[in-house]
Amino acid sequence: MIVGFCTIELRIPMSHSLKNKRGILKSIINRIKNRFNVSIAEVANHDDWKLATVGIVTISNDTVYIQQLLNKVIEYIENNYLDVQLFNHIIEFL
């Protein structure tokens, strides 16, 4: 069993409050959960309304599959959320 996890740092320049940021993140998180069947949550920068750090986790027996899936999630965020800037991501395996 291989656990793959990805940490994504997002900048939300259009956000003007924590409520607005959480609404944007909730939309992103729900769509990614439903589309890619991964676990995802905000893991840092909870009180900063311009920044968010999101953690994504999946499990498989195939490292290549995990890498491809997490890359698809990153690509999905970049292509579908133009009001959010993805400025850093790290993919790791356990």
Rank of each mutant, 00 (worst) to 15 (best):
I2W: 02
V3L: 01
G4M: 03
T7H: 04
I8Y: 01
I8E: 02
L10H: 02
I12G: 10
M14E: 15
S15L: 07
S15W: 06
H16D: 12
R22D: 03
R22T: 00
I24Q: 09
I24R: 13
L25H: 08
I29V: 15
N30T: 06
R31H: 11
I32T: 05
N34A: 08
R35E: 08
N37T: 01
I40T: 06
E42C: 12
A44I: 02
N45W: 12
N45R: 15
H46M: 14
H46Q: 15
D47G: 08
D48C: 09
D48H: 15
W49L: 12
L51D: 09
A52D: 09
T53I: 14
G55H: 11
G55Q: 09
V57P: 04
I59N: 10
I59L: 14
S60I: 02
D62M: 05
Y65P: 02
Q68K: 13
L69S: 04
I74Q: 04
Y76A: 03
I77G: 03
N80P: 01
N80T: 01
Y81K: 10
Y81R: 09
Y81G: 03
L82I: 04
L82T: 08
D83V: 02
D83C: 04
V84D: 07
V84N: 08
F87G: 14
I91P: 03
E92K: 13
F93Y: 15
L94V: 09
